[in-house]
């Protein structure tokens, strides 16, 4: 599998990364280099192998239903690049 320019553009948009048109060929080549190298995995026989998701525990631990957090409005907002009172602010979104 290899990426074409349109796919690189689409993937960049999905990832919300602005890519200048001039940079597309370089990116396309780099990504194809990596993907080409990754391609060797297809040689591994994985028939019937259960995919391994994580390295850790096999089951979730559950916590009790108690309010132990929140009530830190100012700290939550303190790093915001733009805020309006107790809200975060972003350019207007049209639904």
């Amino acid at each position: 599998m290899s990426l074409d320019t349109a796919t690189v553009r689409r993937v960049a948009s999905l990832a919300r990364l602005r890519v200048e048109e001039a940079d597309l060929p370089r990116l396309e080549a780099e990504l194809n280099g990596i993907l080409g190298w990754i391609e060797q995995l297809q040689a591994v026989d994985t028939q019937g192998v259960e995919p391994m998701a994580g390295g850790g525990a096999q089951a979730l631990r559950m916590r009790e239903d108690r309010v132990t957090d929140g009530g830190i409005q100012e700290q939550v907002l303190a790093n915001a690049p733009d805020r309006a009172g107790a809200f975060f602010a972003v350019p207007k979104v049209v639904e």
Binding site: R66, V67, G70
Partner: peptide
């Protein structure tokens, strides 16, 4: 429930904006 699915912040309706928010929720 009293608290959120993955954090200990409260779920009550109608609270002050961003007052029932943990760093996890944000």
């Amino acid at each position: 429930s009293m608290a959120k699915l993955f954090s200990g912040a409260a779920t009550e309706f109608g609270a002050e904006p961003n007052s029932q928010v943990s760093f996890i929720d944000a």
